[in-house]
């Protein structure tokens, strides 16, 4: 028997080489699009926005392991908050974004408190209903939301007289914000709080027995996801300049789920990788004309079959099988 010396407390490297490689590939794609320009700039801008949304969703669905089909509700709050405050009341875009996040956070707290008592499929249904209700409100409450017409002429992001009008600059800013979101996700994941969330996903009983307050942790994760979603909704409004109810409809749930699962739910880099890949894939197949959707679906299926834990989990295949001795 070898008695392992108590080594210095060096936290294990959180990002393995494969993950770093994936992130590097993402950065290269980002740079290529930035140079190439044109329509792809818009695609990449949306990828960054969806990436921020998915980073939030990953807190609740990935780390904590709870289903939410209704995060689009908070993106809706963010988008309409920004649109209304900027178009009707001439607010500063940055201020409107932050104020909307505040509203979305409070909404998440109020809605989450009773809803998160549900589990599994029931929670999924309840959150799905939340998204549908928000969609209906955005259609019906025309005095506030202008119904199907939506809002046009939403000003681009900026601070004071400094506004980001150039499409390339917009993309760079969004990329920067995505990095901030990623950094927050990483910091929270590798902490006492993040370990608590992941423990809940592993075994609620086990976590409760160690003193973790399950309902509080779930609620905080839900609110964090809501804040990210709201920020993404606001950024969409300021980037595209136009929003309507469809933008935050059930379609958004499907798109973001696809991204999260392609990238790897529960992994650190999954949301970012998934958002970029799932956004660019349809463009790659554009040349196939009317077969575009079929080709896209086929690739998605293949990915789910051969990489069920997402692209970022593929690294495990290349990792040398060590540490197995003594087992």
């Amino acid at each position: 028997m070898t008695s392992l010396a108590i080594t210095s407390p060096k936290p294990a490297a959180r990002l393995d080489r494969f993950s770093l490689g994936l992130l590097g590939a993402g950065a290269l794609l980002f740079a290529a699009v930035l140079v190439y320009g044109g329509y792809l700039l818009t695609v990449m801008q949306l990828a960054m926005i969806y990436g921020i949304f998915c980073l939030g969703l990953n807190f609740f669905m990935g780390y904590t392991g709870q289903a939410s089909f209704g995060q689009n509700a908070f993106a809706c709050i963010g988008g309409y908050g920004s649109a209304i405050l900027c178009v009707q009341y001439n607010w500063e875009p940055a201020l409107a974004l932050i104020a909307s996040m505040g509203v979305a956070g409070i909404a998440a707290l109020v809605i989450g408190y009773p809803t998160l008592r549900l589990r599994g499929h029931y929670l999924a249904m309840a959150t799905f209903a939340l998204g549908l209700i928000t969609y209906d409100i955005s259609v019906q409450w025309t005095s506030l939301t202008q119904g199907y017409m939506g809002y046009a002429g939403i000003p681009p992001l900026g601070i004071g007289s400094l506004t980001v009008e150039d499409e390339r600059l917009k993309l760079l800013c969004l990329g920067g914000l995505l990095l901030v979101g990623f950094w927050i996700s990483q910091r929270l994941r590798d902490s006492r709080f993040g370990r608590g969330l992941r423990a809940i996903s592993g075994s609620e009983n086990g976590a409760a027995a160690l003193g973790i307050r399950i309902s509080r942790f779930k609620l905080i994760a839900f609110v964090i996801a809501g804040l990210y979603a709201s920020a993404a909704g606001s950024l969409f409004a300021h980037t595209v300049g136009f929003i309507s109810p469809e933008v935050f409809g059930p379609q958004m749930v499907i798109v973001t789920f696809t991204m999260l699962y392609i990238g790897g739910v529960g992994t650190l880099i999954g949301p970012v990788v998934g958002a970029i890949v799932a956004s660019l894939l349809p463009e790659i197949f554009r040349s196939t004309g009317r077969f575009q959707d079929i080709a896209y679906a086929l690739v998605l299926l293949l990915m789910l079959i051969y990489a069920p834990k997402g692209l970022s989990a593929l690294g495990a295949l290349f990792r040398p099988r060590k540490d197995k001795g003594e087992a």
Binding site: A12, R187, G194, G196, A199, S201, G202, A207, L210, G211
Partner: peptide
Amino acid sequence: QLFKGMSVAENVEVGCHLATRGGVAAAL
């Protein structure tokens, strides 16, 4: 009731929850 998806060491680290403090703000 192990925490799936976490390493052996991380499982024990979760166990330190009650003996430690700090939430979201501290983590950030």
